[in-house]
Design a protein around this nucleic acid. Sequence first.
DNA 1: GTAGACATTTTTGTTGACAGGTTTGTGCCG
DNA 2: CGGCACAAACCTGTCAACAAAAATGTCTAC
Lengths: 237, 237
Amino acid sequence: MTKPSLRTVPSTRKPRAGRVKGAGRAPVPDIASALRERIATQEIAPGSKLRENELALEFGVPRTRVREALAVLEQRGLVQRIPNRGAVVIRLELSQVTHLYDVREVLEGLCARLATVNGDPARWQSTLAHFRGPMARYVAEGDIDSYIADYEAFRRELITSARNPVLANMLDSILERTQALIRRIIILPGRAELGLRQHTALLEAMCSGDADKAEQLRRENMRSAKDFLERYRKYIL
Amino acid sequence: MTKPSLRTVPSTRKPRAGRVKGAGRAPVPDIASALRERIATQEIAPGSKLRENELALEFGVPRTRVREALAVLEQRGLVQRIPNRGAVVIRLELSQVTHLYDVREVLEGLCARLATVNGDPARWQSTLAHFRGPMARYVAEGDIDSYIADYEAFRRELITSARNPVLANMLDSILERTQALIRRIIILPGRAELGLRQHTALLEAMCSGDADKAEQLRRENMRSAKDFLERYRKYIL
DNA sequence: GTAGACATTTTTGTTGACAGGTTTGTGCCG
DNA sequence: CGGCACAAACCTGTCAACAAAAATGTCTAC
């Protein structure tokens, strides 16, 4: 019943290359990354249709390349493609998020263990200090952005230190799919404070070279994140 | 000042080109599966080049479809694609296998735990009996094929019972990449016997509903498999 | 006899066009 | 006034031809 007002480009062709984004030639990985970014930031809402022609026009690339990028995103679990109907952004159900967090728990645990085993303990001292000092202040002052940014850096450092490309790839895949949520979890009452304590404990275990404990602590951390998520699911999903 | 490519005049008429043979139409996933199978069985050796034209001809499909299939295989980590040089089957280094097994350890552990939690304990009684009876006989008699087949069935049952699609997908991904190895690991001296004992112990834990123990036992099982692999690496890789 | 330059062939990368299916808009009939 | 059938527009799936790059083969010069 809704009048389909203003469909873009009624009859006038775009005469010039009106490429809004990258000028000429964007490689497939770049297109996939750009799309991934938009999905993560919810610039493209879950459930939206991704029209190939539209994207091809915007990026100024042939449709085939957009198609390849969509195939990558499908393999990565970010979009769902229905034959002859196109690609839509995956809508996160609670069950799906639970599945992701169950897997993430053991993978992050492994990551913490490997990072502890691989590096020398002294390496994490400065990070521990950072969590005890500035990070604690961020939490106390409610500077969520700084806290998230530095936490992400720490997480990346863990992955790098683990030196396991397979693990890194899988963790990336999970992060891509849950990134839209972390900001909403972290502002839950008490979550940041608990997380901070847990990260500090983890770093202490890592500094003392106790890999088993590091793994266990990291897993507990993930489990508690999942608990928060399930408890406050109404406010998040 | 990009000169827009001149619009081609549709002068050539296509006389409904008939397909030469009954060479059917294979969808992209089928081609990917076929290739995956060949890689797993080493019908295509690691390091081989996969020529698009060749495969297109063999499958009786246009080259584009082979190309898509190769893209899937690349995302799955089974082949490596170098720009302008084509796709080659990944060659497994020991370090890579170690990485895969480290990740597999925690994922299989999670799988065992979830399978224990989700199903009722009685469900695994018959499987336990199967491992104590026929499976033990297979090992004693050296009937490796039957042993592997039934073990694979058990493994799939675990994955199904875990009811976690994310986990299932990742375990599949790992299996695809290591499948060429399992047969060689299992024939190592003492491996099958140890594995049998470990699987039996795992099933006992599952029957008693002890999820934590199940996870731990499964992880030990994987770790010992990795140990065998590293000890006998000369004979395997 | 070998190394290097050039020509040929093979293989991959890219593009636009066409065909089939789905959604959307419109008119007719109950 | 609402629902159904039909037609148009749109979108995706598919394909074969074209262009560029790499690999291969050949010949010549030293």
